[in-house]
């Protein structure tokens, strides 16, 4: 039997299959990447794939970060939360109480993450990167982070300290949402860009419960 030319060897064939799969918008052979255990929330994030950037509008004081936190509970890959809240530190026991796995979620303090933490974005050590209210984050930074996320198949959450609006778009984000707590019993989520319902609510019980 003649030997198979290199370009048609098993390895190259599997590479072709993988690249072909990437062209397909729906990847039913793989499970959902971001899973919170809250059905309504999971529907919004059903199409998130590696390399996506998700933009959140979460003004301070409205407890909205509990929603992105739902995706950082058990069985997450190595992740980093980059924060810069003046004078504030991480209250770790609260994160643990919400079921966040602190063996896999690390924290870094930086007001200008792209400038100060550039090596972090140039490697694939962290598969989930949460950039929380950076003081300086230019369009160039956004393009860079987005490009690196696609290269290393990371998922990036970019949290803004203001509500997002469709009047000012973000072409790099595959999903844009606003989230906040209403009173004591409900959390609201409004989808600015992406699939799923425009706005819906979740009960506090759903958010505070650990979903395994």
């Amino acid at each position: 039997m003649a030997s198979i030319p290199v370009q048609f060897s098993d390895t190259s064939l599997s590479d072709h299959l993988v690249s072909a799969r990437l062209l397909s918008p729906t990847r039913s052979d793989q499970g959902q990447l971001l899973h919170s255990g809250i059905e309504s929330l999971d529907r919004v994030f059903a199409r998130v794939k590696p390399g996506d950037l998700i933009e959140w509008g979460i003004p301070p004081g409205l407890n909205g970060r509990l929603i992105p936190l739902q995706f950082l509970k058990r069985q997450i890959p190595t992740s980093v939360w980059i924060y810069h809240h003046h004078g504030l530190g991480i209250f770790a026991s609260s994160w643990i109480s919400h079921g966040v796995d602190l063996q896999r979620l690390f924290f870094m303090r930086s007001a200008q993450p792209v400038k100060e933490l550039r090596p972090l974005f140039l490697e694939d050590t962290f598969k989930r990167i949460i950039i929380d209210s950076p003081k300086k984050f230019s369009k160039g930074d956004l393009a860079f982070v987005s490009q690196q996320a696609r290269k290393y198949r990371q998922i990036v959450f970019l949290i803004r300290h203001y509500f997002l609006s469709p009047k000012q778009g973000n072409p790099y984000a595959s999903l844009r949402l606003n989230t906040w707590q209403v009173g004591r019993g409900e959390f609201s989520l409004q989808v600015i860009k992406g699939h799923g319902a425009d706005k819906f609510t979740m009960s506090a019980q759903q958010v505070y419960t650990n979903h395994e």
């Binding site: 770790a92 643990i96 690390f106 870094m108 930086s110 100060e116 490697e123 050590t125």
Partner: peptide
């Protein structure tokens, strides 16, 4: 890898545990 990345960064990587 984490230690090597840490060496490249100007700020420490923070991690916590419950007491």
């Amino acid at each position: 890898d984490l230690g090597e990345l840490q060496n490249k960064l100007p700020v420490p990587i923070e991690t916590y545990r419950c007491e």
